[in-house]
Amino acid sequence: MTKGHKELPLTPVSDTPSTINLTGLWRVVRPVVDLSKCKKCTLCWKFCPDAAIELAEGEPHIDLQYCKGCGICSFECPAKCIVMVKEVGR
């Protein structure tokens, strides 16, 4: 809803963090990690534009609430252990 100028703050300020945006809903392909081949180089974690990857003892774990399926992690992974598979049934 468009607000009149009187209802707006002086400058745009949002009091909700950007985590309300569940970018996982955008995904048409999903990254699948073969942890047995992972070298724990952390490159996927560094490159993920949505900070959807968390590291647990060096191993990447992808939060599918936020992973938007861009495939950058898969592209950057030197061990080629992340493959993008089609989302089905969502």
Binding site: K3, H5, P12, V13, T16
Partner: peptide, 25 residues
């Protein structure tokens, strides 16, 4: 000031404003 960055309170400053609200600011 009424609005400022506060520790422990999530807020976003300088966010994108679409054409439907830019002129009002």
């Amino acid at each position: 000031p009424e609005l400022k960055i506060e520790v422990g309170k999530a807020m976003g400053f300088g966010s994108l404003v679409k054409p439907d609200q830019y002129m009002e600011f």
